[in-house]
Design a protein around this nucleic acid. Sequence first.
DNA 1: TTAATAATGATAAATTATTCACAAACAAAT
DNA 2: ATTTGTTTGTGAATAATTTATCATTATTAA
Lengths: 209, 209
Amino acid sequence: MTGKNVPKATLQRYPVYLKALRKLKRSGVERIMSKELSSVVNIEPTTIRRDFSFLGSLGKQGFGYEIDRLIEIFNAQLGMDFEEKIILVGAGNMGRALMKYNKWDYVVGEIVCAFDINPDRQGVRFGIPVYDMDELEERIPSGCRIAILAISTNIQATVDRLVHCGIVGLVDFTHEHIQVQKGVVLKTVDVVSSIQELVFETNSLTTKQ
Amino acid sequence: MTGKNVPKATLQRYPVYLKALRKLKRSGVERIMSKELSSVVNIEPTTIRRDFSFLGSLGKQGFGYEIDRLIEIFNAQLGMDFEEKIILVGAGNMGRALMKYNKWDYVVGEIVCAFDINPDRQGVRFGIPVYDMDELEERIPSGCRIAILAISTNIQATVDRLVHCGIVGLVDFTHEHIQVQKGVVLKTVDVVSSIQELVFETNSLTTKQ
DNA sequence: TTAATAATGATAAATTATTCACAAACAAAT
DNA sequence: ATTTGTTTGTGAATAATTTATCATTATTAA
């Protein structure tokens, strides 16, 4: 269905487009040309057109793209139709922040349940049941493929356990290095790494010119 | 100093190396060959060697790399020596999670202070002073270039205000699309986007073979 | 209905990133 | 000291990605 071989780089831009398109729709815009969109997302018009073309001929020559249509297609491509059942591992500060902001209902599946070793954090939080880590194997929803990792101890062991349970995609909010076998996709989300890249980039910007 | 023109792709791998090297050091490893490191980080040995070579001749032929030396150099390159003064904008759930985990002291600068519109969140939290948003212009440390954005309302306006105060690098924990002028670097850190990429990637993995 | 205008989508060119392959350099062993 | 084995660092080759160019097609106005 999603077929093709969409370049990795393109893939990373899709969420950017979707967000921008939603913003445009909210402000009443109904159609847009690649050139206009370019100035909104800071991506070359020609790159935008190419990125879009992987999902079909979405635009009309001499006219542009209908925003509703684009949003619909991106939603379908980026997960809405998959109804992913996501689990959250770790209900500490970060975990709770993620549970509270569970706005991704109807966007990319939902957090079905969470796990934590600390009894104080167990029970129902923000409408999501939080179980003891010991119950992982029995409580994990069948067909669950994606986990969000927000723990701070026993990290590697927990990852191995998750993979053993059938998890093939991990969003990692941890601050440690994690090793995964081939076939498992790891997306690291780390403030420190982001700042490190930022420091480097902003520095070469200010030093260069 | 950091000079050169390090490829963007390489830049994104540096934090990965640094984390892995720290982990190796903790487990007592003192030197490593590119081939070994490769199996730890899932990056080809030759890519590793080339990435490292941008920072000088860090290894010894027939011997490998000394981990201490690598860590030292990466620390220097990735921000430790810059003593960045970082501000946090938004002290809600996410903001507090970031404040509590302020382990990036001595790694990439530190959060000097935070700002929030909500009086309940102001005062000192986790050792970091949280001021009212109104005080941004007077309280922002001089020379501050990097801000972490963890607010949920008035986002674009706040960004514009920050840029006006001299911010050139933003780590964005928001869930909305943000527009920045050229010269300002935006690093978006978003669970939803990460999951979207993940859904796409894991799906093409399972459908393909 | 036809011509003019405009923006897409596809192909070609340019750029950027990765991998190959090997000479040079170091360590260890003899 | 010399040889052998090993691994780095880097030019050259390949692959991937981005950008430029342009033919095509839809829209709009005459």
